[in-house]
Amino acid sequence: MPVNTNSTGSARTLSVPRWIMPMLAGAILLIYPFLVSDYYIDIAFYFGIYALLGLSLNIVLGEVGLFDLGHAGFYAIGAYVTAILNTRYGIPIFVLLPVSGLAAALFAYIVCSPIIHLKGDYLCIVTIGVGEIVRIALINNPFDLTGGPNGVFGIDFPRIGELLVIDSSLEYYFLIWAVVGLSIIGLISLQNSRIGRAWNCIREDGIAASASGIDVRYYKLLAFVLGAGLAGIAGNIYASKLMCVSPESFSFWESCLMFCIVLIGGMGSIPGVLIGAAFISLFPEIFRPFAMYRMLVFGSVMILMMMFRPGGFWPRKRGGVSYRSLMEDSGD
C-alpha cells in the first residue's frame, strides 16, 4: 500500500486515489471515540460487530454466491464456546478468541460437508435449518452446559494478566475495530489471490469453474469454514462485551440482518459490507424517535434498494488485476 506523498495521485479522473478512502475511514474511526459519549462508542462497537459478521457472511454469500441464512448459528457457536469455557474452566477470553473461531470453523466443516453440493435455494433452506437447530439446541440446555433460555452469565473481560484489561467501552471499541481491520486486510489479500478468483469463478459458473481446474467442493467448504471462523470470533468478542449470552441473540432474524448487510452493500464488496453494517446498526438509532415506523421505513428502504440499486450501494469494481494500467490509459 503506497502511503506517500499526496501529489502523485492522478486527479485526472473523478475517482480519488484508492488509498485515500481507507485512510480517511481509519482516521475517523481513530478520532471518533474521543469526541462522543460512551453511548455512541457502544453504537460504533455494535457497528464493528456487524461489520465483522457481514465480512464473514460476505465470504460465503458475496464471494462464492452460496445462500447461507443460518450464519447466526456459527456466531452462536463462537459466543457459547467462549462463554462456557470461560465461566466453567476460567480460560482467558484472549485465548478463547482463536479457539472460538476454530470451534465455529470445525462446526461449519462438519455440518456443511454433507450439504455443500446443494444449489441455491436448497442450500438456503438447509442452512436456515442448521441455524435454527443450533438455537433450539442451546435453549434445550444439552448436558447442562448452555443454561437454557437464560443463557450463560458472568463472562470475563478479555485480559492479559493485569497488564491489559479490556473493560471499558473505549477499549472494546478498539478491540473490535482492530479485529475488523485485520480481517479486512486479510480478505483483500484473499480477493486478489487464486483463492479469491476461484471463489468468484464458482459464483459465476460452477461447471466452467470445475472444467477450469477449480475443485468446487473444496473451495465452497473453505468459504464456509472461513466465514464461520470469522463469525465465531465475532461471537467471542460479543460474548465478553455483553458478559452473558442467551439463545435469543442468535435468532433467525440475526441471520437475516447479516444477509441484508451483504445485499445492501453489494455482493463481494468489502466497502459495501461496511456500508451495509453501518446501515443495519445505525439505522435503529437514527430512527429511535419514530420507533413505531422503524420497520416500515426499513422495509421500504430495502424494496427501493432492490428496485434502483440491485447491485448494492457499493458493488465490487472489477478490473483490479491490472488496475494501474487501467488508470493510466483509460480512466474509469
Binding site: L190, N200, C201, A208, I214
Partner: peptide, 28 residues
Amino acid sequence: RLFPDMTCLENIMAGQHCRAKAGLAASV
C-alpha cells in the same frame, strides 16, 4: 461458459488455477 462478471484477463487466469499451489496462509 465464461465467468461473465469477471474481466477477460481474470477469466484466462482461472485456467492457470490448476498449475498454481498457493494455499490459504500463503494467500493471506
